[in-house]
């Protein structure tokens, strides 16, 4: 039994590592958006590789633990939710890569800068990722609830950006005859990517409830 506990701790350790990586990727991306620099792209791409490896490691570890120890009750629930969390974290990493690519596009093809709202969104989303991982690790349903509610704020920012970019600038640029399509497009897609990161954070928050109470709560569905 002691061995099993050790394995669980080790699994948790790997998961924390992955969560940290996801958060730092988002933080790095946000810094890149703020400074409008591509210095971060190498870091992000490297992190993405590490992330993928970690996911594979953790998932195979989960399968191993399930087959060898056949855990029950709380332990079983925990081990099962781990795979969900890893897949969400992995997608957060993917979105970080997407954002870097979009930033590259924006810098290469447009004179536009990322909107202040995008930076705002970035900070909010980074906090959400951090909070979601914290809530999951601490099995704290209150925190989970708090951070999953932040998603509304992120969504509203996303809507605002979309509306603004679509209404004025694209139309005007297009009418002028020298359209800067890449800028607004990147703007929208970056916002969308950040919004997706927020959704993944919410999914991680959702995994806390079965850990704590044993039942799935999905108020938005």
């Amino acid at each position: 039994m002691k061995r099993f506990d050790q394995e669980l701790t080790e699994l948790q350790h790997r998961l924390v590592e992955m969560g940290e990586l996801a958060e730092s990727m988002i933080a790095t991306v946000v810094r890149g958006l703020e400074d409008i620099s591509m210095d971060v792209s190498d870091v992000i791409l490297k992190s993405e590789d590490v992330m993928d490896n970690l996911q594979v490691t953790i998932d195979s570890e989960v399968v191993r633990i399930l087959t060898i120890y056949s855990p029950v009750a709380t332990n079983l629930r925990y081990v099962l939710t781990v795979t969900h969390v890893t897949s969400n974290l992995e997608r957060i990493g993917d979105q970080a890569v997407n954002i870097v690519e979009l930033l590259q596009l924006m810098m290469a093809r447009s004179t536009m800068k990322p909107e202040p709202r995008i930076i705002q969104m970035g900070h909010a989303v980074r906090e959400m990722v951090n909070g979601a991982i914290g809530a999951y690790i601490n099995k704290d349903s209150k925190e989970a609830d708090k951070y999953r509610n932040r998603d509304e704020y992120v969504d509203s920012l996303n809507d605002q950006i979309m509306r603004e970019v679509l209404s004025e600038e694209v139309a005007l640029e297009a009418l002028k005859g020298e359209p800067d399509l890449a800028g607004p497009l990147a703007q929208i897609l970056i916002a969308r990517a950040l919004e997706r990161v927020g959704d993944h954070s919410c999914n991680i928050c959702d995994e806390v409830f079965p850990l704590v109470g044993g039942d799935h709560i999905k108020p938005f569905q």
């Binding site: 924390v16 990586l21 690790i137 601490n138």
Partner: peptide
């Protein structure tokens, strides 16, 4: 109260 006795990597989550 909550965090004493827990691993530091789990509590601080900083590589």
């Amino acid at each position: 109260k909550r965090d004493e006795g827990r691993p530091i990597w789990e509590v601080l989550r900083n590589q």
